[in-house]
């Protein structure tokens, strides 16, 4: 399993957090997901054979939020 803490910009409230948790949480290979409004982050534990930090960040971008993989 892999783990990554992605940056997420554009969330303003708990409902933003919820929509990301629902949609990204249901992607294949996502084992655990914690989205934080305060820290503007999404911490994901995922199956390395199905996801990567880049694919997860891309999925968040696809929802209309800005996301990047920290160096």
């Amino acid at each position: 399993l892999g783990s990554v803490s992605l940056k997420v910009e554009g969330m303003t409230c708990g409902s933003c957090v919820q929509s990301i948790e629902q949609r990204i949480g249901s992607q294949p290979g996502v084992i655990h997901l914690k989205v934080s409004l305060e820290e503007r982050s999404a911490t994901v534990i995922f199956d390395l054979s199905q996801q990567s930090p880049e694919s997860l960040s891309g999925a968040i971008e696809d929802m209309g939020f800005e996301s990047s993989v920290p160096n």
Binding site: G10, T12, C16, M63, G64
Partner: peptide, 13 residues
């Protein structure tokens, strides 16, 4: 949509 985060997301997509 419930907040500016939602309308911002709609704008970006």
């Amino acid at each position: 949509m419930t907040c500016e985060g939602c309308s911002g997301a709609v704008t970006r997509v």
